[in-house]
Design a protein around this nucleic acid. Sequence first.
DNA 1: CAGTGAGCGAGCTTCCGCTTGACTT
Length: 773
Amino acid sequence: MTKNLVIVESPAKAKTIEGFLGKEYQVKSCFGHVMDLAKKDLGVDIDNGFLPKYVISPDKKKLVSELKKLANEAETVWLASDEDREGEAIAAHLMEALNISESKSRRIVFHEITKPAILEAIEHPRSIDRDLVNAQQARRVLDRLVGFELSPLLWKKIKPSLSAGRVQSVAVRLIVERESEIKNFQSTSAFRIVGDFIVKNGDKLVPVQAELNKRFHTLDEAEDFLKKCIGAEFVVEDIETKPAKKSPAPPFTTSTLQQEASRKLGFSVANTMRVAQDLYESGKITYMRTDSLNLSNLAIGMAKQEITDSFGPEYVKTRKYTTKSKGAQEAHEAIRPTYMNVQTVEGDKSHKRLYELIWKRAIASQMADAVLEKTTVTIGVSSAKENFVARGELIKFDGFLKLYMESTDEEQSNGDERILPPMKKGDSLVMKQIEAQQKFTQPPPRYTEAMLVKKMEELGIGRPSTYAPTISTIQRRDYVVKEDRPGINRVFQLLTLKDGKITTDEKSEKIGSEKSKLFPTDIGTLVNQFLTDHFMNIMDYNFTATVEEGFDEIAEGKLVWNAMIKEFYNPFHAQISNTLEGTKKVSGEKLLGTDPKSGLNIFVKIGRYGPMVQMGDSDLENKPRFAALKKGQSMDSITLEEALDLFKLPRVIGSIENEDVVVAAGRFGPYIKFQSQFFSLMKSDDPLTVTLERASEIMAEKRKLDSEKTVREFPEDKGLKILKGKYGPYISFNKLNFKIPKGKVAEELTYEECKVIVTDTKPTKSSKSRKSK
DNA sequence: CAGTGAGCGAGCTTCCGCTTGACTT
């Protein structure tokens, strides 16, 4: 039995801290929240001052009883959850769930996992901050009320199982609005003039490129200018040299790590977090879910040493960064290597690459500024009032650039970093050629996952622990898809002046191709339309920031938590009731045209199972026909012809032994049905043209695969089989699956043994019930 | 994994934020 029980949130942290404290201390982890609102109904008693119904989270019951036993045995329980709103609530919930008395418990906090910080914390315990706990409770209750009143409204008004919430709905709105900005974007063009010149540098002739300080709107204007340049003289009119500096980016937070890993390594945010979690658990980096830019003094000291050793003392410049992001709670350090002198790690490629990125960024943040010299050369044209301008940049001292340069989402800048040859006022240049290229304005870019995280952080929506899950949620709900899309070719004009002659060319460039970008789906767009029509207050980009102000006041003891909730809830609930009664079901129905054969109207709309086309009006005597849209089709872009094609299924393509072979489109794509068995078509098969011959091939393949999958069959019972799955053999009995007991060999099981297993043991959970988790 | 889309009605879905394994057919 130990005298002191310390409880932290993360098990990896527990291990480290146990090393800092003596034998008198046992350090355990509670794995985050242990209590939450009851999942059944609202979990909030609205008529009773919004009294929350907290229960021990079902998956934490075992853990809580273990901790309770240890707490009972200990003299003192140290509640060392994170120092933020959620951490304070975790501490309060632990006291309740473990039944720890006020006198036995101590609340301690630390921002960094270093021995001095932990010992310091132990020296200065405090009691639970009830105001902060109430602020968390207000946050939790508000999110529950919003989510559990809005979602059922969507089930009634659009389709079942949809979801809405303070964070996810605004994330979807960002993507829907960006798409509509792109769709409505009016591109304009102008001619950009770039000249290639030669300047004498001693005996050598050196090329210099310069851009005109004016763009022309029309081809004629551009051509007029080029004509003026024929036979003109080009002279250096002015040279300006200015010192400049560049500073390193601060060390990583969750959000900036996700962005850089996306840009530099092409990682999805989920992948970044998975790899970072591994690095954290193996002790390579500090905690990866943080909004803090802070580095411990220990870390800064290690960085200083490492920079001095690797680059020299002149490369050191230690810095303290302060956060600018909205709602940052800064319970942890910034993300950094645990040991700043370790430049790389063992492991697979993605672990190495992410670690090296973290190491470089953290070290560079403590390095000297880069010292630059920026030069601007103005070149006059004897026959025109416009000037050419050449810009150059010279690195006088590289500083942090020796190690690391942050990347940006924008396309690279127009060659500002060139080095110019030495020139002086009055020098004349020889013109080699001048090009006038038609340049088009660009619509705003579509979001990558990481760009969306950046935007959410700017708006204060979501937290480091929820960025990746939120992005998964909106994709899983089919509000948004991450896709590649091919671009289109666009023609542009190019005028070239060379050897005293002007030529005009038409060239083409690929534009608008996208890789791993977020696109709204039809359902996402419709749900967003509905929510912005009726709940603009919740969908407002400032909604979270506004309620956060309320939570802050609660935390400061200036506002009573349920008074704030009441003020929010009463009008919100009235909105829900009004919308429930005052609006019809929405389907986004659109008339596409009429069927030339029957003259019936063709509609496209969202049905219970997603986007579909409908032939015939709903109120007619005859029932309309329906067909689901194919993958890749959208309500917005589908044509009448494509819609009519969808009604061509199901079709009988022939018969085998007097039984029809039918091709149809199902929930999971096109399939063949024969003798009440199903066979999926391949992507390359077109269900409208597939032949009986090809269908036979597909069926034979599937049957072969099935027979390979079967380990054993039993003549006694056709419903009982031993099959080989991805995770080894298992028993299948009337569509239920059972594990094979340890120590048994699948091939040797007898019919009787199998019978015992399927009657005595529980079937494994099907993928359907898992999905609802 | 599967073929739906009227309407009846039961019973189900759903939020955000804090943490990791267990488990998958």
